[in-house]
Each structure stands twice: as structure tokens, then as C-alpha cells.
């Protein structure tokens, strides 16, 4: 039992430290949100890709960055309603 508790604590510590670390009950929404947030964060860090996107969408780099930042809040939309969890 103590072992299980420690594992649980370790996992929680990990999840706290490394955003996006999953657990047994990770939902699809959590998972996809994490993937999208990682992607948006990565785009912003690559200047040439930002320029590529800015040229492609006929805007500017700041607009693309703003868009990425805004999308990071709810990248795949709001979470699904809670009741549906019941079988």
C-alpha cells in the first residue's frame, strides 16, 4: 500500500514538473490539448517557421504569434461535459 502511495506521489511530482505527463485516466481532450499546446509553443520558437506561416497567411509574424498564443488557451475547444463519463 505504501508502495502504491509513493508511486502515486512520484507521478504527481512528475506531472507537476513536466507539463503534459499523462496518467491512467488521461482523457482524449487532455491529450489533444497537450499536443496542440506543445505544437503552438514550438511554432513560436522557430523564427523561420513563423515567417513561413506569415507569408502563407498574408499576415505578419506578430499576428501569427498572437494567434498561437490565443489558441493555446483552449487549443481544441472547451472540455466535454462531465456527465458523459458515466456508462
Amino acid at each position: 500500500m505504501a508502495d502504491k502511495l509513493r508511486t502515486q506521489q512520484q507521478l504527481e511530482a512528475l506531472q507537476n514538473k513536466y507539463v503534459g505527463t499523462g496518467h491512467a485516466d488521461t482523457t482524449k481532450h487532455e491529450w489533444t490539448s497537450n499536443v496542440m499546446r506543445d505544437s503552438y509553443a514550438s511554432y513560436q520558437g522557430h523564427p523561420s517557421m513563423m515567417l513561413y506561416m506569415a507569408v502563407g497567411t498574408n499576415t505578419n509574424v506578430e499576428a501569427v504569434r498572437r494567434h498561437c498564443m490565443e489558441r493555446m488557451v483552449l487549443p481544441v475547444g472547451p472540455p466535454p461535459a462531465m456527465e458523459e463519463d458515466e456508462e
Partner: peptide, 26 residues
């Protein structure tokens, strides 16, 4: 380039006493 590793933003104190680096998240 990671979501929670600082480096995206860099700000330096105008009096040169310290600097801060921030990541996109956290």
C-alpha cells in the same frame, strides 16, 4: 524549443542588475 523551458522571452533590468527569461507556459 519546449513549452515550459524559458527562452522565448528575455527581459533585462534597465539598471543591469538581473535578467529574466520566460517560457510560453509556466
Amino acid at each position: 524549443i519546449r513549452r515550459t523551458i524559458p527562452g522565448q522571452y528575455l527581459a533585462v533590468d534597465p539598471r543591469g542588475r538581473c535578467l529574466m527569461m520566460a517560457s510560453v507556459e509556466k
